[in-house]
Amino acid sequence: MRARFLRDSSRVLLVLAAAPAVLAAQAQPARPSLDPAIDSVIAPIVARTVAAGLPADLLYAKAREGQVRRVPVDRIEATVRTLAQRIEVANAALAPNPSAQELRAATDALAHNVPEATLRNMRRAAANNSLAVPLGVLTALIARGVSVDQATVKVVDLLQRGALPRNFIALEERVTEDVLAGRRPDESLDLRLKGIIPNLPQSAATTDALQATSAPGKKRPR
């Protein structure tokens, strides 16, 4: 019995000892196959990013995108450098622990002239909830033609009202339908928000309370 206990214990210890190495391997950024020329020009940028404790996956992905699309190396280097700067800005604005998806979404938003202060406001409004979808929708709205000012105000407002990812997705889908049908983007955003707001948790809370206390649908007749 004692021998078996020791054998099992040693297995557990071996697994525990190996765990840091496994975790470290998982933490390594994904390295797509890159041409040596591209790899060498982005290496210093990647090194600075990793030294700052930031994920380098986005940089490798952008370099790979440039390589596949046969973009000149100097342009890839410039683009990756700009992206690294945006990752730093996004990481600071979305502190304390932004996810890789949030950083990806935030760099897109920054590239579309969304102010850094907006990212901070969004983090405050969303607390610990992921901002990946709201940031993606913010960028999509701007790309559809909604002004940066209006899009940022409305998205922050929705977050403060407790909007969920599906609410943001629904908003983006409806604005897209309108824009493709010829409606002005700013006008569509205003209109579609009115349809989204009643379904937000805060708006529905009053109805929930009404149903919880009067419970009309749940009471059974005698």
Binding site: A111, H112, G136, R144
Partner: peptide, 15 residues
Amino acid sequence: PRIDDELGGRVGLII
């Protein structure tokens, strides 16, 4: 929505 990829092209943004 199409966004600039800053590599001289445009990509689609799917959420």
